[in-house]
Write a protein that binds this DNA or RNA. Sequence first.
DNA 1: ATGAAAGCGCTAACAG
DNA 2: CTGTTAGCGCTTTCAT
Lengths: 349, 349
Amino acid sequence: MPEPAPGSRPTLEAVAARAGVSRATVSRVVNGGAGVRQALVEKVREAVEELGYVPNHAARTLVTRRNGAVAVIIAEPEFRVFSDPFFEQQVRGISRELTAHDSQLVLLWVEGPGDYDRIGRYLGGGHVDGALAFSVHDNDELPSIIRRAQVPAVFGGRPGWPGATAGPAVPYVDCDNRGGAREAVRHLLSLGRERVAHIAGPRDQTSAMDRMDGYQDVLLAAGPGLIAQGDFTEESGARAMAELLEQRPDLDAVFAANDLMASGALRVLRERGLRVPEDVALVGFDDMTSIAEATDPPLTTVRQDIEGMGRLMVRLLMRVLNADEAEPGAGSAPGSVITPTELVRRASA
Amino acid sequence: MPEPAPGSRPTLEAVAARAGVSRATVSRVVNGGAGVRQALVEKVREAVEELGYVPNHAARTLVTRRNGAVAVIIAEPEFRVFSDPFFEQQVRGISRELTAHDSQLVLLWVEGPGDYDRIGRYLGGGHVDGALAFSVHDNDELPSIIRRAQVPAVFGGRPGWPGATAGPAVPYVDCDNRGGAREAVRHLLSLGRERVAHIAGPRDQTSAMDRMDGYQDVLLAAGPGLIAQGDFTEESGARAMAELLEQRPDLDAVFAANDLMASGALRVLRERGLRVPEDVALVGFDDMTSIAEATDPPLTTVRQDIEGMGRLMVRLLMRVLNADEAEPGAGSAPGSVITPTELVRRASA
DNA sequence: ATGAAAGCGCTAACAG
DNA sequence: CTGTTAGCGCTTTCAT
């Protein structure tokens, strides 16, 4: 345990002196040691160890123009967000992958429109190599801020704002919402269900819309009154279920756009004395285990690999960064990633 | 909207040329503009605007040795952590206050012993001006890592590890756990209750122990069988309540060390047909509104200003940083902060 | 394979 | 008040 001199850290210079080599050589060794004689490498390593040398990040950034930091932007239009287990998992994946890439996670917490200015300046200031953001709502200002700041970015979730499809493609990572929804509905049909209803999520979130599209892909002409609108909350799921039951008392299956709404629906179903899955089969989406495994009966649902998506966001960003380095400004079309989903069968369908 | 030249940002030099002054003058203006003629200030401001100049952080850090970033270390020995509402609030407070101090939040997520090494190196590498950590358990390695890295740090929650009291005092921010507990118990007594039980939190968390101490301060000789051990979970609260009821069926009040355990206790109380507060009065701790307001009856509890504590952690750290700057290495004894608590009366007591 | 030297962009004495 | 100058610690040609 080298006791560093209090006050000032040893520099490259000091290490060089100690090892009897030049600064350049020390630098090479510290950065991998390619093209340096083994004997010297060892001598330098020793000196580094003895002095407890740690490279000065600022100095390195100044010349390499890389700062080994990535911003994670958390916009908070709603109440929860952080305490959302979905979020926690995604950030965890990001954190892990960033660590693997020797990068730091700089958290940018946006609390209101007033913050956008600050965030824009920060992003534009070149403090981070790139940014990771989440496209929650369609009409979010964030994308344009990021574009203006000219910082490479990757989104979590397919962006849905107006010009998203036009112009330079915005790289994003999302799960196969539409395909997963199709699988859920097909599963319900395979169970012999004939009147499958859908509880949809908010209209301004692409994930919700994609899931509804998937539902409609399979049920080309979904009967009237079989789709109800929710907003991803438990309460809205309950309301939507009540509505559906009123319009179509004959329904025999429900596909809810997320587990939380499914649990709300389940509650109403039971209150009405309907048995799940005997009378009505129910499938959710997300496989938020804290919900899906806690309900009675446990929910059959569509799983997405949330942590994996977080990791992929980082990998994608790193690819953009490296492409940018090779050919700056080249529209290196990084493409997006859609991760597969998986139907998890439990007892509700 | 100045369209920055693609590829490279304008430097101080460029601004100086444009404004027809020296780099030094531009630097002065950019950093507040003290001692520069108004005419020049404006000329420089204009040039900055036109060129879309943004200071290079790395260059600035290199000379000032300040990087405007603070690490928030999240150790995760348990499952939840991030999704803990307590945590969310504290981090929110930290984030806000950091923003007010023009500092960035660098998130360091520690997932296991293997990560300590990396964290230690990072902290020691001078990438951040200081660190904020949370003292969850007594036997955590984190404090020693931080000390070795010689980075100024402030803890959230009174540290309880062995040498915490010896050596240089570790600044921390905590609420008045002991005083709050006293108030809770006194309230129960003022209601005429005579056999007040306590459901304690984990023995290796100072907050839990302090609350128990507060309980004992008031009930100098708490009768036998009036204290049961929990671990801050709902389930443990229920178990503890059952235990207490068995040992002291005559108890007429309970002070639980947190709201989660109180809600567990409440559940058991109701299962046994005991009325709250008529038969047994109940007080919790934390005022986690998502719990305290959701129970039936709503919980009387001890509120702590969690977000405020987060903000205070930052302020305290900034004070340490500034003291350090004035007199490096001086044991400037920053002291800790204990924030007051407040009894929130609802229906349970 | 190694070293010498030239900056990266900025701040902070120090002169004027 | 303003400009000149000297680095901060590191990487990176370019010689050798």
